[in-house]
Nucleic acid binder design. Structure first.
Length: 352
DNA sequence: AAACAGTGCAACCGCTCTGAC
DNA sequence: TGTCAGAGCGGTTGCACTGTT
């Protein structure tokens, strides 16, 4: 004998709830409170199974449910949390007041997931779908300059960076997000150490990236190639923008999760190390699509905060018009994420 | 205007997990 | 320790709505 079903299916109503049924359920719960779902339908005069009542209440009738379209902030929070928590919709919903796990799941499957796929991002791993990348094209492209790889080689000779990359990559595969959080916390300690080293080397104007709680991958200055050093100012500008405008993560993700460097919309910090090395050559900022190229490496902010117009310096108003943005606008804005471009103006001879 | 296809969302189903007893 | 109710999840369905032909 297996477990008895939660309710007797015979004679119980299914399908959409009527206003009368909703009213009965609401009135009953107001009087007696939620719970005891198995006996609730009978005592409330509903011809529904307990599970149906529970779902109806938790997903629709609860007074704190927020209806309507998801805002940009909510969407970005979902993506961020999903990158850390995976398909733990209830955990995600717990950080999105007024939204239910079912609603978030539906929204993920019908909107976000499709968009990520169209962008070539694996919605499960939040990483670029390498199977979609035509590597031969990339390798044959005249845009791919070996000098950028030399910069990468220099970076990879740094054991600290390699250790960080390995740690983060391995952590990103951990099922337990707490472990990931712990690893990233360790990362922050290293950042702090490197920050101390860097503070004495870089002028203040080029040292902002360490103040940004979101950008936490340190670049070991001692071993940087000129290519990388050239990137620092651009990078710090964006970091400063994030600081001035406050990152969404500071606002929305509580306590422990704030330790997480966001996966940069599908990129682990280790990915970002490589992206940084190639400077403008790789992952050219999404700011391009709004003519904000001068901001250089605006990767994090442009994806996470998704400014609609104007300069990312105006990031404090990033979300103001978010709800009025169309799906296409969101996608077109993010679709440049995967662009690999090397500006023609970039003279690689300087880096050799 | 009608038919059709595509899309979004509420709701359901079956299963697993968790905590209380 | 086993049982059970509740919670959570992935997958799916059905229907209303919208856009296209």
């Amino acid at each position: 004998m297996g477990r008895s079903p939660c309710c007797d299916k015979n004679g119980l109503k299914k399908g959409p709830w009527t206003p009368e049924e909703d009213l009965k359920l609401i009135q009953y719960i107001q009087l007696h409170g939620a719970g005891n779902w198995r006996t609730l339908p009978k005592t409330a005069g509903l011809e529904r199974c307990g599970k149906s009542c529970r779902l109806r209440w938790t997903n629709y009738l609860r007074p704190d449910i927020k209806r309507g379209r998801f805002s940009f902030e909510e969407e970005e929070t979902i993506i961020q949390l999903h990158s850390v928590l995976g398909n733990k919709w209830s955990a995600i919903a717990a950080r999105l007041p007024g939204r239910t796990d079912n609603e978030i799941k539906n929204y993920w499957n019908t909107h976000i997931r499709k968009r990520l796929l169209r962008m070539g991002i694996d919605p499960v791993t939040h990483s670029p779908r390498l199977d979609l990348l035509d590597l031969s094209t990339l390798l044959n492209s005249a845009q791919l300059n070996l000098s950028s790889l030399l910069g990468l080689q220099t970076l990879m000779n740094n054991p600290e960076v390699l250790r960080l990359a390995a740690t983060l990559l391995s952590s990103s595969n951990q099922e337990d997000p707490e472990i990931l959080l712990q690893k990233l916390q360790e990362n922050q300690l290293i950042n702090a150490q490197l920050h101390n080293q860097t503070s004495s080397i870089l002028p203040p104007s080029e040292n902002h990236q360490f103040q940004n709680p979101v950008q936490q991958i340190p670049l070991p200055v001692q071993n940087q190639t000129p290519l990388m050093q050239g990137n620092m100012s651009d990078f710090s500008m964006v970091s400063e923008n994030l600081i001035n405008g406050q990152t969404f993560q500071e606002n929305l993700i509580p306590s422990s999760a704030s330790l997480v460097s966001p996966p940069i919309y599908g990129y682990t910090n280790a990915d970002k190390i490589i992206a940084d090395v190639s400077e403008n050559s790789t992952f050219q900022s999404l700011n391009n699509c709004s003519n904000q190229n001068s901001q250089g490496f605006g990767f994090d902010q442009s994806v996470l905060s998704t400014p609609l117009s104007g300069s990312p310096l105006n990031s404090s108003s990033t979300f103001i018009n978010s709800s009025s943005t169309t799906e296409d606008e969101r996608e077109s804005y993010c679709s440049n994420l995967m662009k690999f471009e090397i500006p023609e103006s970039l003279d690689f001879d300087d880096f050799m």
